[in-house]
Amino acid sequence: MTTLIMPSNHNSIKTRFTYRFARSLKKLNKNRPASQSMKETYRRYHMIRVASYASMASAVGPKRAWSRAVLWKIRNRTLHRTLMKKSRIHALRTRKVSGNPNDLRKLVPGGEGMDFSRLLNETAHYIKCLRTQVQIMKNIVDHCSN
C-alpha cells in the first residue's frame, strides 16, 4: 500500500523524509533487544540520529552538496568511525563560537571544499531541511509520549 502512495507525493521533501524515517524507525524497533541498559539506549540513540540524517539526505536527493556529503559519510561510516569519535570529542571540548566561516564549514556537511557563496547557499537549504526534520521528529515524539 505504501509503495502505491509514494509517487503521488514525490515532490515534497517532508513526506519523503517522514516515510523514510518512520520506516527506519520500524526497522530499528524490530531489531530491538529486550534489555534496556544505558549503553543500549545510547546505541539506539546514535542509530536513530544517523537514520534521521540519512533519511533527510536521501529525501533531499543528490542534488545538494550537503546531502551528498551526508550520504557519503554514512556509507563510509566504518572507515571514519574512529575519526568521527575523535572529532566529536574535539568539538565538544572546543565549542566556542566566533564569526569564522570555517566554523560554518565544519557544521554544514561537505562544506570544507566550497567557496563562500556556495557555502551560504547550502547553509540556507540545510537550515530549512533541519527545521523540517526537527519539527517532524518533535511531532513523532509528542505522539509517542502521549
Binding site: I48, R49, R131
Partner: peptide
C-alpha cells in the same frame, strides 16, 4: 538545530 535533532533522537530512543 543539530542539538535538537540529537535530543529528539535521544527521546525516541528512550
Amino acid at each position: 538545530l543539530q542539538k535538537q535533532v540529537e535530543f529528539l533522537s535521544m527521546k525516541l530512543a528512550t
